[in-house]
């Protein structure tokens, strides 16, 4: 078994991915291309934020903190989410592709955690995988629709793919924090098979991986995260005396 600090980092990475991506998705609330899509995106956002809470509460138990202290009183350097999760929404194509690339990875991670020896992670994974199964279905269907839709949609999502692809390698860069709990190589192999299948249905092709963008997992972020935190943490930071909201 790992030491506690490493276990907490493991949980924090999972939680931060979900919170930051959930926040990004919530920015679509009221702005989706159709009412149904608006509602669907926000459903996913709520699931992810809910999953992050489950993890922050566990971390809170271990560190004697509240979930709010963990979410609202850390600065960018103490967030350990994947860089992909903090990238801007841009248009619907970029958002839904970012979502698919993450959902597919997220699903495989949870699948492995279900058979881990850690009771908490098993319960977390069992609860979450039901939701993530649906997330994959939804984002995958849209990647295929846009890739295989019109010439315009094809070009747009192709450009999104070129832009997002360099951020996917970070998924599989696992270190001593994750090694005891996840098999990176296996996840990477399965992920590539699934993603290539989907891309081919979408008449797209994975670009060559040239220079991976990485750092979020170790607290080194893009310029975007600070703005997310400013938006997200404003009230708690502006009124630190308030005991409840």
């Amino acid at each position: 078994m790992q030491n506690q600090a490493s276990y907490i980092t493991f949980l924090t990475r999972l939680a931060d991915n979900n919170l930051i991506l959930g926040h990004r998705l919530s920015e679509w609330c009221g702005h989706g291309p159709e009412l149904e899509q608006d509602i669907a995106l926000i459903n996913v956002a709520l699931d992810l934020i809910g999953q992050s809470r489950f993890l922050y509460q566990k971390i809170g138990d271990l560190e004697q903190k509240t979930e709010d202290q963990i979410a609202y009183f850390r600065d960018a350097g103490q967030f350990y989410n994947l860089l992909l999760c903090e990238l801007p929404n841009e248009h619907f194509g970029t958002t839904i592709l970012r979502q698919y690339l993450y959902d597919q990875f997220h699903y495989l991670v949870l699948e492995q955690l279900i058979s881990s020896s850690d009771e908490f992670l098993v319960s977390y994974a069992k609860k979450s995988i039901k939701e993530v199964e649906y997330h994959v279905m939804q984002s995958k269907a849209w990647v295929i629709r846009l890739g295989d839709g019109t010439e315009k949609s094809h070009q747009k999502i192709k450009a999104s793919l070129d832009k997002l692809w360099p951020y996917t390698d970070e998924f599989f860069m696992m270190d001593s924090v994750e090694d005891p709990l996840l098999e990176a190589e296996k996840i990477k192999k399965q992920w590539l098979v699934k993603v290539n299948q989907t891309l081919s249905e979408a008449t797209l092709e994975a670009p060559e991986q040239t220079w991976p963008q990485k750092g979020g997992k170790w607290g080194k972020h893009t310029e975007h995260l600070g703005f997310i935190l400013a938006d997200m943490q404003f009230l708690q930071r502006a009124y630190p005396d308030a005991k409840a909201w």
């Binding site: 609330c29 702005h31 992050s52 809470r53 922050y56 709010d68 997200m232 708690q236 909201w245």
Partner: peptide, 25 residues
Amino acid sequence: MNITSGTEEEVTMDEIGTITDFIQD
């Protein structure tokens, strides 16, 4: 959370869920 086109801020973990839910309703 840039809910709708306002300038709202998130408050607690509990509330970002309920408020997003609300807009979705």
